[in-house]
Design a protein around this nucleic acid. Sequence first.
DNA 1: CGGCATCCACATGGATACTG
DNA 2: CAGTATCCATGTGGATGCCG
Lengths: 126, 126
Amino acid sequence: MRIHAVDVEQKEKIPAWCAGEDWCPVTGTAELLANKWHPVIVHRLLEHQELGFNSLKDEVDGVSSKVLSESLDNLQNRGIVRKEVVDRSPKRVKYSLTELGSRLEPVIEEMGKWGSNNLRKPDEYA
Amino acid sequence: MRIHAVDVEQKEKIPAWCAGEDWCPVTGTAELLANKWHPVIVHRLLEHQELGFNSLKDEVDGVSSKVLSESLDNLQNRGIVRKEVVDRSPKRVKYSLTELGSRLEPVIEEMGKWGSNNLRKPDEYA
DNA sequence: CGGCATCCACATGGATACTG
DNA sequence: CAGTATCCATGTGGATGCCG
């Protein structure tokens, strides 16, 4: 197995060595984002900087408390999301992106662009 | 519900109207990519233009025939992947990306960049 | 307000074997 | 070569309720 240099300036195309190697950055990123809610959560935090639990729940349409909580744990463990307890009684927390998480912006942005340009809103099919 | 204009030139940031609306392009794209194998499959097809079933299976490390088959069906139904039967006996097919699928390149590319710059290969942790 | 506990349904994917 | 057929384990998420 070779060790591959990383393109610091990010000008390269998708690294061809991704295939056939035992590790692939696309796969790695996919493991993070291949989740029903992760991309949206990151997206909302990119937009709002910081959000409380229920505000975030309102933003992420359709998610349950349990699943949101699990997803946030997950993102926290991966170093994407930061959680800060602001107050207790009434309890108040803030969720925000870490530096690492913020660097996902280009990914989310491209996802948004592709969706905007290539997907249609359900009612536009009529 | 408002109908929103699409930014044809793709210069805008993530559409803020994604939140609070009943449809969001990031969510839409996430539904497509929130699958264990979809991003890698698209990635490999971006690199190789066209691949036979087993070649693709070799490229997508760890996938089983069944799951690869299912994923390809899925991507085909969504208009991302095109399948062409080249020969029969021995059967030979070609999988490639549609125009729509090809437009996912920036998304995959950003995923690759993020992975390259922010994730480490497992053995580098030692 | 910000969760966790519980229970449950279903989707997803893995293993193995087999076929035209 | 390119799948399909089964069967099964697990994950993932949904519903509801409760708690500090």
